[in-house]
C-alpha cells in the first residue's frame, strides 16, 4: 500500500510530510516504517497525527527524497487490543469536568468504559500517550492555566483526546484517575511499550487493586498477559 503525503523541504535541516487523506492507522504505520528504515540521511523521525517531521543530517541529497516512499504491508498495521486499568479517584478536576460536560460522574465513567480508544500518537514528554476515540460529549477544552505538577500515571482528558502522563510534568488536561501499570521502559528498547494503533479499553479498578498493581511494578503488556 502506498502512502500519500504533501512534502515541504526546509533546506538541509528537515522535511515535513503532511498527511494527505490517509487514515490514521496507515499514517502511523508509515511513520513507524520510516523510523525503522534507519535511512542514512535521517537523524530523527517525529510522527504526529497530521505530520511527520524528518530531521536531516549533512549526508542528505535532494535525490534522497524518493527513498521516503516506503511501502506499507497490510500485516504491519497492528491490531493489538489492550485493557487499561484506571482508578477513578477524587481528583479536583472532576468538578469542572462534571460541570462542563453537564453529566454526572457515573455517566462520564460509564461513557469512558464503553469507549474504544486508540493510541493516536506519542509525543510531548516520554511516555505521554495521546488516545483518540474520546466520545464527543467528553471533548472539552484544556485548562486555561496549566497546572505545574501532574502526577506520573495520571489519566486525563482534553479536547478530542484521552491521555496518560507517564512522568510527572506540568499540564493543562483534566485529570480523572490514575493508571497503575508501567508504560515507560527506560533504559530498554523500545523505551515506551504502548504503540500508535494500539486499541485501548479502559477498565475500572478500586483502590485496593490499584495499590496491588502499583506495588507490583507490572507493565501494561504484562497486565494484559503479553510480554
Amino acid at each position: 500500500m502506498a502512502i500519500n503525503y504533501k512534502i515541504e523541504i526546509f533546506d538541509n535541516d528537515f522535511i515535513l510530510l503532511k498527511n494527505d487523506k490517509n487514515v490514521l492507522k496507515e499514517w502511523q504505520s508509515y511513520g513507524k516504517a520510516l523510523y525503522n528504515s534507519r535511512l542514512d540521511f535521517i537523524d530523527e523521525v517525529i510522527c504526529s497525527e497530521y505530520e511527520i517531521c524528518v530531521k536531516l543530517n549533512n549526508t542528505f541529497k535532494y535525490s534522497d527524497i524518493e527513498k521516503l516512499q516506503i511501502e506499507i504491508k497490510e500485516k504491519e498495521i497492528s491490531t493489538r487490543v489492550l485493557k487499561m486499568p484506571i482508578l477513578f479517584d477524587n481528583n479536583v478536576d472532576w468538578k469542572h469536568v462534571i460541570q462542563q460536560c453537564n453529566m454526572s460522574r457515573e455517566e462520564i465513567i460509564s461513557l469512558l468504559l464503553s469507549s474504544k480508544l486508540e493510541v493516536a500518537m506519542l509525543g510531548f514528554l516520554p511516555g505521554f500517550i495521546y488516545m483518540s476515540g474520546l466520545p464527543k460529549e467528553l471533548c472539552i477544552p484544556r485548562k486555561a492555566n496549566p497546572k505545574n505538577n501532574i502526577e506520573a500515571g495520571s489519566f486525563a482528558i482534553a479536547s478530542k483526546y484521552a491521555g496518560l502522563y507517564s512522568v510527572e510534568s506540568p499540564g493543562g488536561w483534566h485529570v480523572l484517575g490514575k493508571m497503575p501499570c508501567r508504560v515507560l521502559n527506560i533504559p530498554d528498547i523500545p523505551p515506551i511499550i504502548l504503540e500508535p494503533q494500539d486499541i485501548v479499553h479502559l477498565e475500572e479498578i478500586g483502590s485496593i487493586k490499584y495499590k496491588e498493581l502499583n506495588d507490583s511494578n507490572i507493565n501494561i503488556l504484562e497486565y494484559n498477559g503479553l510480554t
Binding site: D43, I46, L122, G123, F128
Partner: peptide, 11 residues
Amino acid sequence: REALAYYAIPA
C-alpha cells in the same frame, strides 16, 4: 542522544 524523538525522548 540520537533517534529517540520518535518515542518523545528529546536529544
